[in-house]
């Protein structure tokens, strides 16, 4: 999960010494492309071909269905809460970890990474164990009529957990690589701590942040396993888009299922496009300088 770092001005024309014979080059390109086509392009194509299987009208009809709309709304709400929280966390964590040295740093980084490799099934389960009726806080919550699991807060919590490391993991290596000389200089010149952060640090890691946010957002909108455990699957209320896809699929409504899935695929494509354009812009800027 490393960010596209500062080497935007990559060597565009490696000299003869640094490259392979044209035949080898094209062979490697071909192998890589075939592999990617098989693993990435084909699934993507399959989603869209099934979605438009019965024509555009059916496709739009599927998206206009009230339960679909409410699932889209829920997914947007979830992402809108999750992403800023994890962004704030990511930036603070990266600041503490990248700019300072302290004992137990390695352990802290590992713990931040943990949600990334915890099985989604477990990620959902832990919140049920705590907030569920049989869990630690369950009876108390029940008494006060507060719903966490099987309601929106539980879905948001599980999503925060799953996307927890994304921004932090993008930023830590980037901020480490940049060192702290620039910040120190700013401070010496009389800038306040926050000024230093916003004027010096932030511009330097802007693209890392954007990349982290994009990934965090995509994952937040697409998470299935963890959310499935805490959702309760109440139609029109606690179904997110990925859960709704599964439900439609299970109702033998394949076209609608893939139509809704294609929304997520669109989202994926748009995020990827934004990312590419952003990178390209920066590169241009660097070349003009």
């Amino acid at each position: 999960m490393s960010a596209p770092t500062k080497t935007y001005a990559a060597k565009n024309n490696p000299g003869r010494a640094q490259t392979e014979p044209a035949a080898v080059r094209w062979l490697l390109i071909a192998v890589a492309l075939i592999f990617l086509a098989l693993f990435l392009l084909l699934p993507l194509a399959a989603v869209f071909s099934q979605a438009f299987d019965k024509g555009l009208a059916v496709y739009l009809e599927a998206l206009r269905e009230p339960d679909t709309l409410s699932s889209i709304k829920l997914t947007l709400i979830t992402a809108a809460v999750t992403v800023p929280l994890n962004l704030f966390f990511g930036v603070t964590a990266a600041w503490a970890i990248a700019k300072f040295s302290f004992p137990g740093k390695g352990l802290l980084i590992t713990l931040i990474d943990l949600p990334f490799s915890v099985s989604p099934v477990i990620s959902g389960l832990i919140y049920v164990l705590i907030f569920g009726l049989q869990g630690w806080l369950g009876p108390w919550l029940q008494e006060h009529d507060i719903r966490i699991v099987f309601a929106v807060p539980g879905i948001i919590l599980a999503t925060i957990f799953v996307t927890f490391p994304f921004v932090a993991r993008e930023l830590i290596p980037l901020m480490e690589a940049q060192g702290k000389e620039e910040e120190e200089a700013a401070l010496v010149l009389g800038a306040s701590g926050l000024q230093t952060f916003f004027r010096v640090t932030l511009p330097n890691v802007k693209w890392g942040i954007i990349y982290g946010v994009i990934l965090c957002n995509a994952r937040a909108m697409g998470e299935f396993g963890a959310v499935s455990v805490v959702s309760g699957h109440i139609r029109g209320m606690t179904n997110t888009v990925p859960l709704h896809v599964e439900i439609l699929y299970n109702e033998y409504n394949y076209t609608a299922a893939f139509a809704v899935a294609s929304l997520l695929a669109f989202l994926a494509l748009i995020t990827l496009m934004v990312k590419t354009v952003a990178e390209w812009k920066v590169r241009q800027q660097l070349e003009n300088n």
Binding site: V128, F131, G132, L133, Q134, G135, G138, L141, Q142, R147, V149, F150, G232, H233, I234, R235, I247, N250
Partner: peptide
Amino acid sequence: SHGGSGKQARSVIDG
């Protein structure tokens, strides 16, 4: 709300 019978029962047990 629909799902596997056991899973649904568990959700009710869990609140």
